[in-house]
Write a protein that binds this DNA or RNA. Structure first.
Lengths: 160, 160
DNA sequence: TTGATATATGTAGTTAACTACATATATTTG
DNA sequence: CAAATATATGTAGTTAACTACATATATCAA
């Protein structure tokens, strides 16, 4: 396997490489939805899938759940509202909160996606089923980082 | 380990999760450079490191090497030129080409970064040294995708 | 029970990559 | 060797996330 400088730099360029792989998969994701003739954008996935599984959520709890900053969630919600895939209502006990849920159109779309997801899960399983499993590796690294951040670890090595 | 909906969706949200992890590491990367009092941005890494290892390259070959679209490279080069870390000259045999290289200031900066990189490599080795090694998993997945794209694999599963 | 603090949402502007298009020069081919 | 094609660079505009700041409401504590 010929190696370029970035790949050869190994651990130094880990962030760049994660992003590159993410982009690559996302682009193919969009093409898969197109091939199935489904009007769906990969960036909608975290919000819509979470609402599909949890039915009703406030903006901040949704943001926490998907791991996005809340303004990112708000702009996605704005777009999804325009698409009539979600709707909002006020929380009666805490008037600051806006509760978000799928519309019937949204629920229908998500239900129609089940077969596409099945295919995506299979294809992903296929590509990650290597000696070192990518999903497991991500889980493990995230758990490790939760214990102690990258920054703190780097600082510890510095002092040695 | 409590799981949120996105993590639980596993293979479906792989692109989102890769990106999230990349962002997290990049942000800590910036803080590490700051802690070492080095005026360096993580986004500069691919270009500068490649020029450090390969000395002189054209815009397109550099873009290919780091895996970026060429306009992205051009805007990074513009910024690095303003910082006086790189300079360009015309290729004498092919006048279309612009050859890019590190300035003395650029070389000095990169040399000063060696100790920081050492720490980053150690910290990264620490977090990726789990049962499934993240770097190896990325290498394996990229190799697998090179053989046959995600889209083609998904389409193959569809037809079954 | 009011003043301080915390939480929820929203807006504005930034960033770091991208795609689409344009132009100049090189290379290939009939 | 001229026309067609390919390659190299550049510009303009887009995208999908972010941070910083603002405001309204809720909760807590003196």
């Amino acid at each position: 396997m010929e190696q370029n400088v970035i790949d050869a730099s190994g651990l130094l360029a880990i962030s760049t490489r994660l992003q590159r792989l993410s982009d690559q998969i996302r682009k193919d994701g969009l093409l898969i939805y197109k091939a199935f003739d489904i009007d769906f954008q990969p960036k909608w996935f975290p919000v819509l899938y979470t609402l599909y599984k949890k039915s009703t959520m406030s903006v901040v709890s949704l943001s926490d759940e998907i791991g996005y900053a809340h303004p990112s969630t708000i702009s996605l919600l704005k777009e999804l509202e325009k698409e009539k895939l979600i709707r909002s209502k006020k929380d009666k006990t805490d008037t600051r909160k806006r509760l978000v849920e799928l519309t019937d159109k949204g629920k229908e779309l998500l239900a129609n996606m089940e077969p596409v997801w099945e295919v995506i899960v299979k294809a992903t399983a296929e590509i990650t089923n290597t000696e070192n499993n990518l999903m497991k590796a991500i889980n493990e690294v995230e758990a490790t980082l939760k214990e102690k951040s990258f920054l703190l670890r780097a600082e510890a090595h510095r002092k040695k």
